[in-house]
């Protein structure tokens, strides 16, 4: 797993010590860039990383999904994008709201990861620290062999998911801002 913000800075080995600070929104791209279409979650994240609104943290995850638990503990909302295997056509996009209801069992078994992202989300729910807002984007891939090449049909899906996540991020953060304003004592507005 790689936190995109840390991965570029290794001036001191101590800087790599994973400190997860609380944040309003976390956007996570999951995948293995050396296993073909499994990289699609990472590629979506890399495409949108420069456009995310203030207040959102972006994180790349590859391999060990238990770090996702640390992220789930420390965020008010989370958007996860990952590759899935399915009989649906390659490029098909699943969008699940998992904050209020469990991820369907079929979706869990579709994940390409052993301790997969959907199972990790359900583990956080069982342990009582799942954020109330959880969005999962699953993009159906075709080839998961050892290659850095992506199936061509995924290019359009990446663009669609990128745009959709940015819209979600805007609405999650603006809802949160409205909520903060509603919660503020009225006299604060005088300033």
């Amino acid at each position: 797993m790689v936190d995109a913000s840390r991965a570029r800075s290794h001036d001191s080995v101590s800087e790599a010590h994973p400190v997860v600070e609380r944040t309003a929104l976390t956007i996570v791209g999951i995948g293995n860039e050396f296993r073909g279409d499994d990289a699609v979650g990472l590629l979506v994240l890399r495409r949108l990383v420069k456009s995310v609104p203030a207040g959102a943290r972006t994180v790349e995850l590859a391999g060990d999904q238990t770090y996702l638990l640390e992220l789930l503990r420390s965020t008010d909302a989370i958007i996860v994008v990952d590759a899935v295997q399915s009989s649906a056509p390659v490029g098909t996009i699943f969008r699940l709201e998992a904050g209020e209801r469990p991820v369907p069992k079929e979706f869990l078994s579709f994940s390409t990861h052993t301790f997969d992202s959907a199972s990790t989300i359900e583990l956080a729910r069982a342990l009582g620290f799942l954020p109330s807002k959880v969005l999962i984007y699953g993009i159906v891939g075709k080839g998961f062999s050892y290659t850095t090449r992506l199936t061509a049909e995924l290019a359009e899906s990446i663009e669609v998911v990128q745009a959709s996540i940015l819209n979600d991020a805007d609405s999650i953060l603006s809802e949160r801002t409205s909520k903060i304003h509603e919660d503020l004592p009225q006299d604060k507005y005088r300033y």
Binding site: M1, V2, S14, A16, H17, P18, A62, G63, D64, E70
Partner: peptide
């Protein structure tokens, strides 16, 4: 179990630059 695992991950990150890879 999760706390134990995190401690191991953190130690690896200090010495190896990051937990994975």
């Amino acid at each position: 179990g999760l706390r134990l695992k995190k401690t191991g991950n953190d130690l690896v990150a200090i010495l190896a630059g990051r937990e994975i890879h």
